[in-house]
């Protein structure tokens, strides 16, 4: 085949691949919207499941998901930002501390999510929770059981590498000339990081948070053992309460409910809500980022 022909066929091939992806996405989203549209109503969004989950709504699951993700963000963003700042601004690349923590983060990113669930159960629930009960509750079972706090912490560990990598990238993209200008004016390294570099990297910090949230909102495996409830119409009120979660609720509706056929339309509607929530989050992130880029960082 001539070079020209090769070129053409390659363009054709990549065009087909793009088409395939777009079609698959359209089929998935279309299917979900088509089937899930009908049951969505105010009752569905604001009510609790009833009648063995064949009727009623999904509000506890929406609430639980939002709370879980919020708590997770509170844990993961400050920690991730600190590690990223250490990696990008302070660490001596030759030091063993840097190489070990770097390796640890890389490995963390490759661990299957179910393993995080087991880790959360063993470490947070049994070890930390058990210790808290021993120390503060005279051994009475209070924190030593699955709870939203432990689920949020487990999720935070899971999403930590995502946050670190995206914040680090944002810090690296701040031109070296800004750092030099700051040092040349007599700024310390810490002043340079917090007054010059970090404000510039704010969009990246935000992206890191949102990426963690999107990743976390879709994960079911890590919270299976550490706090997600099969059916719990009451909303969580304390950090050691269990909670319902959208992804887990979908799993339950699809495979665990007594009458799978009867829950089918509710299942589609729940998937639609989860998709819409994730999409909304991403949209917010993109909008804020775009705005930050235009103004060149916050002042």
């Amino acid at each position: 085949m001539s070079l020209r022909g090769l070129d053409r066929s390659f363009i054709l091939l990549s065009g087909l691949a793009v088409l395939l992806i777009v079609t698959m996405l359209a089929i998935i989203v279309g299917n979900v919207v088509w089937h899930g549209w009908e049951p969505i109503s105010w009752e569905f969004l604001s009510g609790a499941p009833r009648m063995g989950m064949t009727e009623g709504g999904i509000f506890p699951a929406i609430f639980g998901t939002v709370l879980l993700v919020l708590l997770m963000t509170i844990f993961v963003v400050p920690l991730g930002v600190c590690v990223a700042i250490y990696f990008s601004e302070y660490a001596n690349r030759q030091s063993w501390l840097y190489r070990w923590t770097r390796q640890a983060v890389n490995n963390l990113a490759g661990v299957p999510s179910i393993v995080f669930g087991l880790f959360g159960l063993g470490f947070f629930v049994q070890f930390v929770g058990g210790w808290v009960d021993q120390q503060f509750y005279e051994g009475k079972l209070t924190y030593g059981q699955p709870a939203i706090l432990w689920a949020a912490l487990t999720m935070a560990v899971l999403t930590l590498p995502v946050v670190i990598v995206s914040v680090e990238e944002a810090l690296r993209s701040v031109p070296q000339s800004y750092r030099e200008a700051s040092y040349a004016l007599g700024a310390t390294r810490t002043q340079t990081v917090f007054r010059v570099v970090l404000p510039q990297a704010l969009a990246g910090v935000l992206t890191g948070g949102i990426l963690a949230v999107s990743r976390g909102a879709g994960e079911v495996a890590p919270i299976l053992f550490v706090g997600a409830a099969y059916y719990l119409p009451e909303l969580p009120k304390r950090l050691n309460d269990q909670f319902m979660e959208l992804g887990y609720h979908i799993y339950v509706l699809a495979t665990q409910s007594p009458d799978v056929e009867a829950t089918k339309s509710l299942l589609y509607a729940t998937v639609l809500v989860l998709l819409a929530l994730t999409f909304l989050l991403n949209l917010t992130a993109i909008t804020i980022r775009a705005r930050l880029r235009v103004t060149g960082g916050l002042r």
Binding site: P175, S177, Y178, E180, A181, Y183, A184, A187, G297, R299
Partner: peptide
């Protein structure tokens, strides 16, 4: 730090901070 305050510097590429 004190030294750099006494000896200021201007660089080849203008590098104002993206601030006001």
């Amino acid at each position: 730090i004190a030294l750099r305050r006494r000896v200021g510097m201007v660089f080849q590429q203008p590098n104002p901070f993206p601030k006001s």
